[in-house]
């Protein structure tokens, strides 16, 4: 209510016992309702919601929005992880350029060659010679 209107009501309430009693009654009822405490869920309903809202596939656009909405601490952590990751990739790529153990199939016996056979992609491994021998006899 505006100033003059509120003043008019106030003046009326001072002289009218009926309206004053009605207002007091209403205010008391307001107090009674505002004293009702809020209720909270008994169980954690999130599990139910999660089960019913399976994401189809996380869109790449999500990551852009996520970065925008992330906290400063999370952004710093993500940046640190990214820097460490890039450094690790660079380190390993430099190491790969250096000459290492010569690749190639292991054809002879010996401890080093056994390890080489184990690490090669040959599924037959040391059984290759025996198998070839069997096939020759057939």
């Amino acid at each position: 209510m505006s100033g003059p209107e509120a003043r008019k009501v106030k003046n009326h309430l001072e002289s009218c016992k009926t309206c004053k009693a009605f207002l007091e009654d209403e205010l008391a009822f307001d107090m009674r309702l505002s004293a009702v405490p809020p209720v909270e869920p008994v169980n954690d309903v999130w599990a139910l919601v999660r089960a019913r809202t399976k994401p189809r596939r996380l869109s790449p656009a999500v990551w852009l929005v996520k970065i925008r909405s992330a906290s400063a601490a999370a952004k710093r952590a993500a940046a640190a992880v990214a820097v460490v990751g890039v450094a690790a990739v660079m380190f390993y790529s430099l190491n790969l350029n250096e000459p290492n153990v010569a690749p190639g199939p292991a054809t002879t016996s010996g401890a080093d060659n056994v390890i080489a056979v184990k690490w090669s992609d040959d599924p037959l491994g040391s059984h290759r010679e025996a198998l070839v021998e069997c096939l020759d006899k057939m």
């Binding site: 869109s59 996520k66 906290s71 999370a74």
Partner: peptide
């Protein structure tokens, strides 16, 4: 990223709803 704790708590409801559109359950 990806956990709800990663979001700034002050992230607006509207922004979170935008993420829901993009299937972000968090």
């Amino acid at each position: 990223m990806g956990r709800s704790e990663d979001y700034d708590f002050s992230a607006s409801n509207e922004m979170l709803l935008e993420l829901c559109k993009l299937q972000d359950q968090e």
